[in-house]
Simulated assay, not measured.
Amino acid sequence: MTILTDPYRPDVIRDQYLMVWFNGNPNQCKIALQIDDGAEFQPAFTWQNPSVTYPAVIKIDGAEIPGDGQSHLIKVSVWQAIGHSTSARATLSDFAKTPTVRPATQPSWCGVTAIRQGKTLYSAPHVISGHISDLTRVEWRHTGAVRIMAKVPVANEKTTGFHDSIISVGYADYDETQFFAEGIGSNIGWRGGDFHNVLFGVAAIHGGQFGPITWANTPVKIKEVYQNPSIAPNSPDDIAGTAIAKAYSTFREEVAMALFAANGWTYPNYWETSPRRDTARMAVDQLLLRIKDIIRKGGSVTLDDLGRFEARWNPARTVRSMAFVASAGFIAGTRAGTLLTDQQAKASP
């Protein structure tokens, strides 16, 4: 069964036809078609490959099933009929369905009321302890189930502007007429706690499909909410600005620059060729590769003032993993927020 739909509206059916093939001459055969429990009939057909009988392919344009999105039984029978002689029937059944029809009905009205604005709570300066979510009541008039939507201005991280994004915020059954949307401000992004227009709307639901959105006549003002990760308060390092994350390429470059500085060499510009810089980069690469090579073979590497990299096996000796054991100087220095050698750590009280 072939069902052709509108490329811009998949729920709109343009054509339906059934392709059937069998060994025999269609001009000497009878074809019968039955849809669900309907009466059997002999449809008109077009022989698609005239003179070819093994197999013959025919197209039945009258094989249409209801466009309700439900599965329908299609039964095709073919038998030879020459004069008064007929053969036994060959029958095949299959199921097909059309795309679900998009709901034609649309909620007649939608209204919104802002109940509460969101707020970020602080237990101390720069220390976020929690959030209070914004709350908006959305109401509508419709006799069926609906999906509640919001058109939210989302901050563009690459520019200083915003772009509208339509998001789904919830669903309601046929007997409900209001919904409380919460936490919309966290979807906007942070530009300092500004207020933005957010437009709410509802769309009818039918058979898993959504109809056109009925938007509220006016938007509501919703405040941006600063969303810090919920793992809670910022650490003293975050507050002091010393907590940084380094990509390997940046880390390697900084090591090379430190090597140049320690030896009194002038670090070249990025566009300049420098065999010495290339060697410094390669040394960092080879250091890490050598450590990984030793560990993957079950060994260990101990670096003074840093720690020991080692391979470990599970009790059954079926899985190898790796571990890092920090040295005494590394542990004590990290706790104190300073650089310590192992010897210094052991000498300290």
Rank of each mutant, 00 (worst) to 15 (best):
D36K: 07
V152D: 07
T334E: 02
T218C: 08
R290G: 15
T100I: 10
S274K: 09
G130E: 06
E254Y: 12
P349M: 09
D134V: 06
R281T: 01
L199K: 13
P103Y: 01
M282Q: 13
I74Y: 11
G67N: 13
A240F: 05
A114R: 15
H84G: 14
V325R: 15
H84I: 02
Y8H: 10
K346G: 02
D305E: 09
D134M: 04
A155I: 11
V202L: 06
L339D: 12
S108E: 13
I294C: 03
Q343Y: 01
Y267D: 12
K297E: 15
P7C: 10
W265C: 02
A336R: 13
Q34L: 02
L18R: 02
Y226V: 07
N187T: 02
Q16E: 12
T136V: 15
N27M: 09
L306Q: 03
Q28I: 08
V198Q: 06
W265F: 12
E272W: 11
A326Q: 09
N156K: 10
S186Y: 03
I222L: 13
D15I: 01
T279C: 04
G337F: 02
A262Q: 13
Y226R: 14
N156V: 01
G307S: 04
Q178Y: 12
L259P: 00
A336N: 08
D342M: 14
T338S: 07
M282A: 14
R191K: 14
D134W: 11
R320C: 04
R14K: 15
A96C: 06
G298A: 06
F45N: 00
K158T: 08
Q28A: 13
N25P: 00
A90V: 02
I188Y: 02
A90I: 01
I239A: 09
P233L: 01
A247Q: 12
A114N: 11
D15F: 02
G67A: 09
A345H: 13
H142M: 03
G189C: 04
L121V: 12
G337V: 10
N228C: 05
R335V: 03
Y174F: 13
D94R: 14
G201L: 08
Y17M: 08
L73I: 12
S168Y: 00
R317W: 00
Q117K: 10
S129G: 07
A316Q: 13
T53Y: 14
A150C: 10
A232P: 06
T91E: 11
R252I: 03
A124L: 11
S77K: 04
A243K: 13
D6N: 13
W47H: 04
T214K: 14
Q34E: 05
D194W: 12
S85C: 07
A56Y: 07
V101R: 09
N187F: 01
E224H: 09
D173T: 07
F179K: 03
Q70D: 05
